[in-house]
């Protein structure tokens, strides 16, 4: 029997001004990271409703990462501070529900940090791959 290599499903929310641009820079510099990472563009990391994260896990994502501007550098002055507070709460709640800490991450990536973006993604994918499939929150009713 052939065992299919496990590929995690990672959803990344990136703010338009810093992290999405950082991801673009990683592309410009051809810094590779696994194709398992799928990026969703949001105007600011504070646009990420905890609901979106829950939805991703419900639909079978194995890890969710949110990237925003560095503290103090938010394009909207203070959006990432809200994100930091909200996600601290959400991640600890998810941890309580059995979603391991390594499946969620909040990272600050500036528009100049293409290398950091790629390194972060490589590291995150590695950690999630080590944890294996997320079965805790996945809603099988969503699967056909």
């Amino acid at each position: 029997m052939q065992v299919k290599e496990y590929k995690p499903l990672i959803v990344a929310f990136c703010c338009n001004w810093c992290s999405y641009a950082g991801a673009d820079l990683a592309g410009n510099n051809r810094l590779s990271y696994p194709a398992d990472v799928k990026i969703i563009r949001v105007p600011c990391s504070c646009r990420v409703n905890p609901m979106f994260v829950l939805r991703a896990f419900q639909r079978g994502a194995d890890g969710v990462i949110i990237c925003g501007c560095h503290p103090g550098d938010c394009h909207y002055t203070s959006g990432n501070y809200y994100t930091r507070r909200r996600m601290a709460l959400l991640f600890s709640m998810l941890d309580y529900l059995g979603i391991e800490r390594d499946r969620t991450r909040l990272e600050w990536v500036s528009a100049a940090e293409g290398a950091k973006f790629a390194a972060t993604m490589n590291d995150f994918v590695e950690k999630v791959t080590a944890l294996g499939e997320n079965k805790r929150l996945e809603d099988l009713r969503c699967k056909k």
């Binding site: 959803v11 799928k38 969703i40 949001v42 105007p43 409703n49 979106f52 939805r55 991703a56 639909r59």
Partner: peptide, 15 residues
């Protein structure tokens, strides 16, 4: 960037 739109993106990616 409506909630519904972002949610639809999440769903499409996680399908």
């Amino acid at each position: 960037f409506a909630s519904g739109q972002i949610m639809a993106e999440v769903d499409a990616i996680c399908k």
